[in-house]
Amino acid sequence: MEYHLTSPFDEEELKKLRIGDSVYINGIIYVARDAAHKRMSEALDAGEALPFDIKGQTIYYMGPSPARPGRPIGSAGPTTAGRMDKYTPRLLDLGLKAMIGKGRRTDAVKEAIVRNGCVYFAAIGGAGALLSKAIKSSETVAYADLGAEALLKLRVEDFPVIVVADTAGGDAYRRE
């Protein structure tokens, strides 16, 4: 199936998605990778608030190349999601609804996906030039000192992804 959906997502719409479905995302997505996840985790450990309200939001695991003048962003493909697994179940339990990345997740993450009615999407790894075309604006929300690992807020139009883990526990990477 093919869907055009808006992020933050409607929970009922996420429930309809199944592994293998093609989704074109419109709206707002946040960007965070290794170092930003470590900082968010440290903030939570210290009892502080996250730099953005995570409830209902989407996180894209990505670190872009620098934008040329006049462009919103540089090359912008997904990074390996598994490196964020240590931090992810806690964020899902706090209300994070969707993730965009590539590659396998741990069982702990997959269980948290089902428990919270979330979806994990894959964007095509290594297609950073193509994916940058769907990003219309980018602003730094926090951790600017991290350079390519800063926490960003993006506005996207028809950003192409594929469902790889769904609310029913499906995993598109599983091979029998």
Partner: peptide
């Protein structure tokens, strides 16, 4: 993606 990278002078992959 390769076509866009060459035409727009943008890296093939962000990494």
């Amino acid at each position: 993606n390769l076509k866009i990278a060459e035409e727009d002078r943008i890296p093939i992959c962000q990494d």
